[in-house]
């Protein structure tokens, strides 16, 4: 088995939303090139509203856990622990699992795009950005060694409609976290509660190195929008991203410097690529030269 796959096998990935399948219902999917089946179990007692699931990879049952309104699976024999998102236990937030978007791209390119703000005026025109407000001001990026996560802070960007709840343009502040190679968490100014931060996460299920299912998830303060409106807003954004992600060449993410040209605005992605390279997280990446 190659080292990139061996490394990727030890992480947890989402394969379904909690409550997505009815008891007894089954779906077929793929994870890291392996065919999987996801079966919703019949409830042990009648009061259980959402069934647990059983996931089989090549016929054999695998480890499953529930977190952030999704079911997570690890196919490896030395699983790393799943990252935490503290806000997931804050009862006054709205939790919005947004469904799934299949994208014909490397899972790493999907995460990197999520960490990028400079594309907002061009890809999410009139929503997350608009000309002439294109400048990306200096921000801070580091690897937090205590938790081994990439952290980008002090990001500010003008947004015409930062969220479903926003009325008019605001200067939005962003913090990004990359807690696992195929997950990213964003904390951004909440339009309705300026002292709080909305949380938007991207959980990526790698079907193989060049195809992924992306499961966006949000933990917001918004007591006016319906769940459907919140989901539609996020799906609009992500479908705009897909038109980019499926047209990047090469399909796999280059980790060695020199193959693509970054600028100051790309410090988060530079840090992400270095962090992946240092960890040996090469699944979905071009061959790395030491």
């Amino acid at each position: 088995m190659n080292a990139a796959l061996e490394h990727a096998l030890q992480d947890w990935y989402p394969v379904a939303m909690v409550g997505e399948l009815a008891p007894g219902e089954c779906k077929h999917s793929k994870l890291l090139g392996v065919d999987i089946t996801v079966l919703a179990n019949h409830a042990g007692n009648a009061t259980e509203s959402t069934p647990t699931i059983t996931v089989r990879a090549d016929g054999a049952p695998v480890d499953v856990q529930q977190a952030f309104d999704h079911w997570w699976v690890c196919l490896g024999n030395k699983p790393r622990s799943l990252f935490t998102i503290e806000e997931a236990s804050e009862a006054d937030r709205r939790f919005v699992p947004c469904g799934v978007v299949r994208v014909a791209c490397s899972p790493l390119r999907a995460v990197e795009n999520f960490l990028d703000i400079a594309h907002f005026p061009f890809v999410h025109t009139g929503v997350l950005g608009a000309e002439p407000h294109t400048e990306v001001y200096k921000y801070d990026v580091k690897v937090d060694e205590s938790v081994d996560e990439v952290i980008a802070t002090n990001i500010k960007f003008y947004q015409p409609q930062a969220a479903k709840s926003a009325e008019g343009g605001i200067q939005t502040e962003y913090i990004y976290r990359v807690p696992a190679p195929m997950a990213a968490v964003l904390y951004k100014t909440c339009p309705l509660k300026p002292d709080a931060l909305d949380v938007i996460a991207l959980f990526v299920q790698p079907l193989d190195e060049q195809t992924c299912d992306v499961w966006p998830w949000m933990a917001l303060y918004d007591d006016t929008s319906t769940q459907a409106e919140l989901i539609q807003f996020q799906q609009l954004i992500f479908l705009q991203d897909r038109s980019i992600l499926e047209n990047q060449l090469p399909k796999k993410l280059p980790l060695d410097p020199g193959q693509e040209i970054p600028t100051k605005a790309d410090y988060t992605s530079v840090a992400y690529r270095r962090w992946l390279k240092k960890r040996g997280a090469y699944y979905g990446a071009l061959e790395v030269h030491p």
Binding site: N247, Q248, I261, T263
Partner: peptide, 9 residues
């Protein structure tokens, strides 16, 4: 058909 920045067509 590739932007040198991020490989976009």
């Amino acid at each position: 058909n590739r932007c040198p920045h991020r490989g976009m067509r």
